[in-house]
């Protein structure tokens, strides 16, 4: 079974062949655009469909909160509403209803649904470095902003690939040094260098 057609990225021609012949194609037959193709077992295997049909509720059985004609199989771990197999969202070790998933997702309470994080350490470092290399006069504005951000975001979830907490602490120290250094420079220029 063919899962999806492969097209040339340049001329959109359909690349001819099946799972066995596609890997031998090195360029588009029409426009000669170079292409390397690797086909994996999932390409020929039929899709694993799991058609879940909730059974109708019988007398004496609990019904789903949303689909009142369907038999409930599990309660929501957050709100306790009864759920049928369609409404049950197994996330991690929990079984949640669609409403709770939506709320938890909006409040970022479910780590499993997290798909991005803001790197506050980088924000602080940008605020530290950019004024130094561009216009030093904005340091009285950027250094306190960076410091406050570093304080407020010190407990925010860290990066998955970098030591962001360490960089944030280092940034916090440097913002103080930058600010003090700037004040010292101003005092020197005004009082001692007759600036």
């Amino acid at each position: 079974m063919r899962s999806a057609s492969l097209q040339c990225h340049r001329c959109n021609t359909l690349l001819p062949g099946d799972a066995t012949t596609l890997p031998s194609i090195t360029e588009c037959p029409l426009c000669a655009a170079p292409v390397t193709i690797q086909v994996f077992p999932a390409y020929i295997q039929p899709p694993a469909t799991s058609l879940v049909v909730p059974s109708a509720v019988q007398s004496g059985e609990a019904s789903c909160f949303v689909h009142t004609q369907k038999r409930a199989v599990i309660p929501c771990d957050r709100c306790g509403r009864f759920l049928c197999v369609l409404c049950d969202f197994p996330i991690g070790n929990q079984h949640l209803c669609p409403g709770c998933v939506e709320n938890a997702s909006a409040k970022k309470e479910l780590g499993e649904l997290e798909n991005h994080r803001v790197r506050w350490d980088l924000v602080v470092w940008y605020l530290l470095v950019v004024p130094v290399v561009s216009c030093g006069w904005i340091i009285p504005l950027t250094a306190p902003t960076a410091f406050v951000l570093a304080i407020l975001k010190r407990q925010s979830p860290p990066s998955l690939v970098s030591r962001s907490r360490l960089w944030l602490k280092l940034g916090m120290i440097l913002t103080i040094l930058e600010f003090v250094g700037f004040i010292a420079l101003m005092v020197y220029l005004i009082h001692f260098a007759n600036f």
Binding site: A42, V123, L160
Partner: peptide
């Protein structure tokens, strides 16, 4: 300044292509 995560199940990958 935003770190994005994307997870792809290995068993779902059908084709890998390198396009010049």
């Amino acid at each position: 300044v935003v770190e994005r995560y994307r997870r792809i199940a290995l068993k779902d990958i059908t084709v890998m292509t390198i396009r010049g």
